[in-house]
Computed example of a mutant assay.
Amino acid sequence: MKEIVALSDKEITIDRNEFLKVKGSIDRNVYYIVSGSLRVFVLDDYEEQTIRFGYKDNLIVLLDSFLTGKPSLLYVQAIKKTVLKVITKEQIEKFLENNRNAWTQILENLVIQQMDREIDILTNSPKERYERVLKRSPQLFQEIPHKHIANYLRMSAETLSRLKKS
């Protein structure tokens, strides 16, 4: 990942609650989070469903749009003030001419994360969902407000609070 991040020659800052991307936008960048945190969500019938978080030292990419060049259905919003390094698709493609393994590892990691996420959603018990995410990403609970984690886990904030206490 360090090789990919080193490609960046641009850094941006987005303020708390500001959108990095909105539904319908095309994104040809990968973002490395220097500081702060983001959430990726879909808006379905006026209800937000958080599907991913990013915080310090994570990569965020709207993979659907990045790979296809088509508009994404997703939103990316800063949870708190966030500093990002921007790596363009062109920078990545040039790098890949000689370093395909690094990109393959990043994509494999993203696919595995998405599969873990799908298992989380399909797991019936809120307690199991909470325990799986806590085990996999303990830093999440330090970086992300509980209301967003509860939404991500498809449970109420009260249920999450109860699970944390038990």
Rank of each mutant, 00 (worst) to 15 (best):
L59Q: 03
L140N: 06
A102S: 09
I33K: 11
L74P: 00
R100M: 04
N151H: 07
Q91E: 15
R39M: 11
K10N: 13
A150Y: 13
E143P: 01
W103I: 01
K80Q: 15
S72T: 15
K80R: 15
Y75P: 01
V61D: 00
D27E: 14
V40L: 14
T123F: 00
I119Q: 01
S65D: 01
I112Y: 10
I106C: 02
D9T: 08
D120L: 13
M1W: 02
T13M: 13
R136Y: 10
H146I: 07
I60S: 06
I79G: 09
D27K: 00
Y130C: 03
N124K: 14
T50I: 15
L63G: 02
L62S: 14
E90L: 12
K80I: 07
R129K: 15
E93V: 04
S166M: 10
I12T: 07
K89V: 02
Y130K: 07
V61H: 01
P138N: 07
G36L: 12
S8A: 15
E128Y: 11
N58F: 15
I79C: 10
D64L: 00
Y130M: 05
T82H: 09
Q105R: 13
T88G: 08
T82G: 07
I79H: 10
I87P: 02
K165E: 09
F19D: 08
E128A: 13
K135R: 14
V22K: 15
L38P: 02
E3Q: 12
I12C: 11
M1L: 06
A150W: 12
I112A: 10
A6M: 07
L67D: 05
K147N: 14
K147H: 13
V42I: 12
S137G: 03
I33V: 13
V76W: 01
L122S: 00
L163T: 05
V42E: 14
K165M: 12
F66V: 05
M1C: 02
A6D: 12
E131P: 00
F41R: 06
L38V: 06
E90S: 15
G24R: 00
K2A: 10
S166R: 14
G36A: 12
P145N: 07
Q113S: 12
S125Q: 10
I121T: 01
Q77D: 07
A150S: 11
N17V: 04
Y32L: 04
S125A: 09
D27I: 00
P126H: 10
V61N: 02
T104N: 11
L73Q: 13
L63D: 03
E11Q: 13
S137I: 05
F41V: 04
F19M: 08
S125W: 10
Y55Q: 10
H146A: 14
E128L: 13
N124S: 08
L110Y: 05
S35L: 06
R132W: 02
E143A: 09
L67W: 06
Q49M: 14
V40K: 01
L20E: 08
I112T: 05
F66A: 09
V83D: 12
V133S: 06
K94C: 04
L163W: 07
T159H: 10
E3F: 05
Y32V: 03
N17L: 11
K56V: 06
T13Q: 12
S125H: 07
N101I: 05
L122H: 01
A102W: 03
L73M: 14
K127S: 02
V76F: 03
L59W: 11
L62N: 11
G69M: 12
L38I: 06
L20F: 09
L67G: 02
K80M: 11
E108V: 02
Q105Y: 06
A150Q: 11
F95T: 04
